[in-house]
Design a protein around this nucleic acid. Structure first.
Lengths: 261, 261
DNA sequence: CTGAAAACGTGACCTGCGTCACAGCGGCTG
DNA sequence: CAGCCGCTGTGACGCAGGTCACGTTTTCAG
């Protein structure tokens, strides 16, 4: 497999517009220019950390935007540091020698990628690629480790984050190891989607699905064709409805049946 | 599936004798009675931590021994705390509703189990069961979190451990997701075994394998019969030799071929 | 708008391995 | 020492889903 470029400049997919009125980049991102103001940080990342600590983090991080398809790092690389995602999503994949790959996790805004490698010093075990145009803060390994040494509470927070991504990884193992059929895996995948909070009382769950069939196949461990076929069969059986990029789980109980059994 | 007892008192397997001249329990363990003296701690666990910190840890941990088959915790339980394994090995499995299970990781002496759940507060995601009679120190969640708050360097160390178990989990995903055949998975499994350090210069690698075919099947994600059949075929093709519980990789290159391709 | 590439849809084929069933075989245990 | 249970070994069978091949639709850059 040829070594891929670190940053693939091609931007293929339609830009997903983000709400808010911040400055727009060529990729349609709103730019966050300061860690202290970043809503993501205060909400999820290092919540409850003192502003002084955040300011410290800000001083060592450098922000950048990347187009869709940009590769933040490749598995096997020496860990250079962590990327704190401000905006957009990043997919983390494990790749085999023949190019076959499994999407282990999709990191959303507010999450950190490259954390385990950076902490342990072992080479990155996954490849990180932007699913959409993203903005991310990079913190070098050296600076980040020093930052954690200086701020014990941040270190604890990092341990918490590691626990969360460990949890997501466990889900992945369940997909790959504990399913009897591809249908079961796809059903579980659909049920795991974040429901759109819009109308919550209504029973048919809606969710947005910005992954291709091929990417879904990577996540649940089957071939692209199987995903296509299963979607067709699910539609026929009134389990789901697909309109563009939004999925409606028409019969949630039916999907749960597929998983439970 | 019936809820299993927390501790299964039956001891079926032959006791694996441990070296050393410490006191022997009914299970054949040598007992370590103090964290400060425990060779495991100083070597791997919280290495480089100040003795005062270790003493603190000692004061909040309670030691116990468990027979083979004892279940330290079950997936889905509220996280009660962590178990620091002093002696013996613990297998961590994810189980499906129908009883099918995947061994995610085997934790050796010096490692901690129950860490992610304890840190994040989410319920244990795996089930921990003693593969052999073990001795372990239990630290309650409350005490452990306080301990980490008090000792920032320990928190960093915990983050490191989490990174390591994350790494092992990644291996598991590779087994389950990126292999073309069961033969490839078994070959990778055999190559991942810890070689016995005895005679290192000799090319045929030796390793001890204290897992049953069924357990191996759980680790690489296939059926017990397939493991048996593959072992037979590997023997026929002069790839491995099995003598009791020790495995000799006669043709390491041949095994690597199976993995690479 | 328009052409090309990516994504989706579907049929045919075939094989790897799960499943079932049962047979030897140690080795605890009473 | 007898009987039982857990582990290993092997054959037969079937099918889920991978793979290939190709057509259609959608996306998007210039």
């Amino acid at each position: 497999m040829p070594q891929r470029m670190l940053v693939i400049p091609r931007v293929k997919r339609r830009i997903i517009p983000h709400g808010g009125d911040a400055m727009k980049t060529p990729y349609g991102l709103k730019v966050i220019d300061n860690c202290l103001n970043c809503p993501v940080h205060t909400q999820r990342l290092f919540c409850n950390l003192a502003p002084a600590v955040l300011a410290d983090l800000d001083s060592i991080s450098s922000s950048a935007t990347y187009p869709r398809g940009a590769v933040l790092f490749v598995e096997g690389q020496e860990p250079r540091g962590v990327f704190i995602i401000c905006n957009g999503r990043v997919k983390l994949t494990a790749t085999a020698a023949d190019g076959k790959s499994v999407i282990v996790r999709v990191a959303d805004a507010g999450e950190i990628v490259g954390l385990p490698g950076t902490i342990s010093g072992q080479s990155y075990e996954l490849t990180a690629e932007a699913l959409e145009p993203i903005q991310a803060n990079f913190v070098s390994r050296k600076d980040f480790l020093q930052f954690l040494k200086d701020h014990g509470d941040a270190a604890l927070k990092v341990a918490e984050m590691l626990s969360l991504i460990y949890h997501e990884m466990t889900q992945e193992v369940r997909y790959l190891g504990l399913a009897h059929s591809a249908a079961e895996k796809l059903a579980r995948f659909l049920l795991d989607l974040q429901p759109i909070p819009g109308k919550d009382a209504g029973s048919p769950v809606r969710a947005t699905l910005t992954l291709t069939h091929e990417e879904i196949a990577g996540m649940i461990g089957c071939s692209r064709e199987t995903v296509t076929r299963l979607f067709a069969s699910f539609k026929k059986n009134q389990l789901v409805e697909v309109h563009g990029s939004s999925v409606i789980l028409k019969n949630k109980a039916g999907l749960e049946d597929l998983v439970e059994r």
